[in-house]
Amino acid sequence: MVGDEGKLGEREEEDGGEEEEQIVEGLGLYKGKVRIVNSEEPSEETMLLWGIQQPILSKPNAFAKQSSLQLRLDSCGRSLSILQSPSSLGTPGVTGSVMWDSGVVLGKFLEHAVESGTVLLQGKKVVELGSGCGLVGCISALLGAQVILTDLPDRLRLLKKNVEANLYGDVKGSATVTELTWGDELEPFLCDPLPDYVLGSDVIYSEGAVMDLLETLVDLCGSETTIVLAGELRNDAILEYFLEAASKEFIVGRVDQKQWHPDYLSPRVVIYVLVKK
């Protein structure tokens, strides 16, 4: 099936299944296969994820360790060193001071997707929401994107440190750091021109933040913008709430783990691609 605006690729039926599952080749700028989430019944998606991936049966922190002062990761031909601030975790609401598996998975997913040709980041404008320690934004810049990393004002010091420490020498793209509170009016440079990609990892964490997040996503996205979000499967009710609300504005597709970086797979993580309806 081809969407009216050319956003959806071809539709397939899932082999061996009695019910037809909508799989499309490409959604927005992402050229890989995605499974379209049923906007009428988002509970189907959460039941499927928790039933098949069974996240609670696997151990968290396969790739990240919040008690460490830094995370080391090889990516884009260099060794990245991401500073963390474990002591800040004691502050209520502060989780961006350390890395989580979803951020590592998303960063390596983007690297793998660029190598396999399903994502093109060279010269693209990218806005990252909730950048935290900055790993995803740094990898995006190394892959050629013009990245704007954003977070709350009290998170920017650590974020800037990591950007400066890891983006040195010959970098294909660029990175700037700025504050952004979801739901607030956007600074003109964030949305003029509108970004090609909006990225986020672990940004769906509470019902209270969902509507502010969606307001910012709507403001940042035009008809040519593609959103890529990764998150850890901790609370099915919060994810279902997000999917139900997001489906009013966006087509939502889930990326199968077969298209992730083969060394960075986790049943506790999910990756979604969204485009405006």
Rank of each mutant, 00 (worst) to 15 (best):
241 Y>N: 12
122 Q>Y: 12
91 T>L: 14
28 G>E: 09
193 P>I: 06
33 K>R: 14
182 W>S: 03
110 L>A: 05
63 F>W: 00
271 I>P: 02
16 G>L: 02
211 M>K: 15
268 R>C: 07
189 F>A: 09
146 Q>E: 15
153 P>F: 03
131 S>H: 00
126 V>S: 03
35 R>A: 09
122 Q>K: 13
68 S>P: 00
2 V>M: 10
221 C>Y: 05
180 L>T: 03
207 E>D: 13
238 I>T: 15
52 I>P: 01
131 S>C: 03
262 P>R: 00
45 E>I: 09
218 V>G: 03
114 V>M: 05
83 L>S: 13
147 V>C: 09
80 L>H: 01
82 I>M: 07
193 P>L: 10
277 K>L: 15
198 V>K: 02
149 L>G: 06
88 S>N: 14
230 A>S: 15
268 R>N: 07
232 E>H: 07
33 K>F: 12
272 Y>A: 00
272 Y>T: 05
166 N>Y: 02
59 K>I: 11
111 E>K: 08
198 V>G: 03
265 L>C: 10
167 L>W: 01
58 S>L: 04
21 E>K: 13
116 S>F: 08
113 A>D: 01
97 S>P: 04
112 H>S: 14
128 E>S: 04
72 R>G: 11
73 L>R: 02
112 H>V: 07
211 M>T: 15
41 E>P: 03
150 T>L: 05
97 S>I: 03
41 E>K: 15
50 W>Q: 04
92 P>N: 08
118 T>E: 11
144 G>P: 09
126 V>T: 05
100 W>P: 04
177 V>E: 02
196 D>M: 10
150 T>P: 02
131 S>D: 06
241 Y>I: 08
150 T>E: 05
198 V>A: 06
16 G>I: 06
17 G>W: 15
59 K>P: 01
134 G>Q: 00
140 S>I: 07
30 Y>P: 02
107 G>N: 07
235 N>L: 11
94 V>G: 06
199 L>Q: 04
117 G>K: 09
216 T>H: 07
191 C>H: 13
49 L>Q: 09
208 G>K: 14
267 P>I: 10
80 L>W: 00
248 K>L: 10
134 G>R: 01
230 A>K: 04
97 S>N: 04
161 K>Y: 11
36 I>Y: 05
188 P>R: 08
232 E>P: 07
23 I>V: 14
15 D>K: 14
173 G>Y: 04
185 E>N: 13
237 A>K: 15
270 V>R: 11
111 E>C: 08
67 S>K: 10
208 G>H: 12
256 D>F: 10
47 M>N: 15
98 V>P: 01
136 V>Q: 00
32 G>R: 09
226 T>A: 06
160 K>F: 09
84 Q>F: 09
232 E>N: 11
157 R>T: 14
146 Q>S: 13
96 G>V: 09
157 R>N: 12
101 D>W: 01
33 K>I: 06
127 V>D: 00
59 K>H: 11
251 I>S: 08
139 I>S: 03
4 D>S: 12
82 I>N: 00
50 W>I: 11
226 T>R: 07
2 V>K: 13
96 G>R: 07
239 L>I: 11
25 E>N: 15
201 S>V: 12
24 V>T: 13
172 K>A: 15
184 D>E: 13
15 D>H: 14
32 G>P: 08
160 K>H: 11
31 K>H: 12
265 L>P: 02
